[in-house]
Each structure stands twice: as C-alpha cells, then as structure tokens.
Nucleic acid binder design. Structure first.
Lengths: 143, 143
DNA sequence: GAATAAATATGATATACATCATATTTAAGA
DNA sequence: TCTTAAATATGATGTATATCATATTTATTC
C-alpha cells in the first residue's frame, strides 16, 4: 500500500505529535527507537519532511525535531505526498496512460470509489486529530 | 498500490479473457505487445499464474496460453494474491505487529473501511465480469 | 521418431528502494 | 571565540524488484 518510507514518516510524525512541541524538542536518536525504525534511515526521511515544512527542527545543542501548531494542522496526505509524490496514489490502477472517465480501464469504476474515499479521508484528517486519538486512548502507536 | 507484476498480470489475464478460449490459444509473444509489457517479463508472470491454475496453457506447436471456463470464474483477488501474497493487501498500514481492533493503530479506523470495501469488491468480481464489460464497451484496455 | 514450435525453468543483469556511514553546517554555552 | 551537540548533506552499500537471456521440456506434425 504505502512504501516503507511513508510508513516510517507517518509513525515519526505521529510520535512527534504526541511527544513534542515548540518548547520540547526531540532528538532523532530518541525518536528512532520507540517507533522501531533504523536511526540513520528515519533521519533522512525527517530531513525531507523538514525541507517540506511538514515538521520543524533546529540544529545545535538543545536542538531537535518537533511539531509546531502550524505543522499539526497539516493533513495526513501531505505527509504521504511529501515522501512519494501524488501520482502513486492517484494514478490508474493498471498504469494505463489513457484511462479516464470517458474511457475507463476495467478496474476504474470498480476500485476508484474506495480509493477516492480513502484519499478524501486522509485529506480531511489532520495530524492533530490523530494525536488526540492517541492521547485519549482511542488508538495506539506500539511496535 | 499494486506492484508492477500484479498490474501486468491483471492486464494479461484480462487480455486473455477477451481474446482466448480453449479453442483459441494465444502465444506469449502475441500477448506482450498489445498490453505493452516486456515479453520475457510477462512470460515469467504467466508461468506463475499457470502454476497456480489462474490461467491455462499447453506447450508445443499450436500451444499457448488461454482461459478456460473455470479460469474465468476466478475472482480478481485471486490474481493479486497469486503474485504478491495476501499479507501485502491486508497488513496494518503502519506495519505494526500488534495492531488489531482492540488496540488499533491511528490509521486503523480511518483507512480500513475503504480498504476492506475494495477487497470485498475484488473478491466478488470475476474475471468474466470484467471481460463482459470490455466486450460491451463499458470499459477499455488501451496502452 | 525426427524436426519444430511452443511453454517452462533457471539464472544473469539492471534499476529502484532501503539501510548504513561519514563529513559538513549550525546553534548554544562556557 | 572555542568547544560541543545537534540537524543536514552526501554518498556508499545492501536488498528486493524488474528486466533480459538462454537452456530445457513438451506436444504437434510429418
């Protein structure tokens, strides 16, 4: 479904949503272990997220990565698209260039409703929404 | 979403559904071009499908690959699972081992309904169903 | 039963994705 | 302003997926 990089990114951002704020930064090495992702790898993913303003960071001593209020209001798709681009989620399921509503591929009408439903859901949910679910015990972020 | 191998498999099977039967076999080389897939690659995929009885084949002169009546009644998921296994479609979206209804991951309730809807749809549709769509002009299999 | 034409089996190469390692930049504190 | 601690940039290695090539098996036809 999603690439590993996207899964790692989602886990990292959710972890930051619960465990950081502009006063409380988290070092990459302290984030890698609890979400069970290789440190060097998640570091690279975080760099990309930082570049695209999905997360915030400061360098040097007392530095770290974190989410500020603006970051928290981003949608979940923004994370996915930041890492693997939009096409992968919206492209024709059979990779047909000419697939469209007027000339749909055999899977188009079958699968697109579910797919579009999923995308809509991911567009409407913010990082903060999910963080509140975790904080209130409605969902969990285990290994 | 799906791997290339799965996409190629789906295209190949749909092509066979429309262009073959037990009296009319298709050679691999005559199948590769119209569905725009490298011949040597689709050959390998077809071998796997044949081994798993998703498609039929005979060797030697006048041989080829084709779908018999039984093949046509298989569901679309059977093709997907034959190539990439079931886990990939049903596993937790964040790859969490312990994700389940009692302790759901943050994406669980969000994404699973759409996902299960899609799987159900793919389970209920047979290859023949889609072949009829193509034959009647309701859907298309272009490049 | 020999020649031929097809799928099948096997393995080699290429490309993309995942992981690891290290040098560079930046900010804090003494 | 020097030292240190953090993220960042860059590149190297490993692994899985995709692609290519070739030898083997099997069925047909003469």
């Amino acid at each position: 479904m999603f690439s590993k990089s996207v899964k790692y990114a989602l886990k990292a951002v959710l972890f930051l949503a619960v465990n950081s704020n502009d006063k409380k930064k988290v070092m990459v090495k302290d984030l890698a272990k609890p979400i069970n992702v290789p440190q060097a790898y998640i570091a690279k993913v975080l760099q990309e997220l930082s570049k695209q303003k999905i997360i915030s960071s400061t360098r040097g001593p007392k530095g770290g990565v974190f989410l500020d209020e603006k970051n928290r209001e981003q949608s979940l798709v923004s994370i996915i698209y930041a890492i693997e681009g939009e096409k992968k989620m919206t492209h024709c399921l059979l990779n047909l260039k000419k697939c469209n509503l007027a000339k749909p591929c055999p899977l188009h009408h079958l699968a697109n409703p579910s797919r579009e439903e999923l995308i809509k859901t991911l567009k409407n949910k913010t990082i903060n929404d999910l963080a509140m679910d975790i904080k209130s015990g409605r969902s969990f972020l285990p290994i």
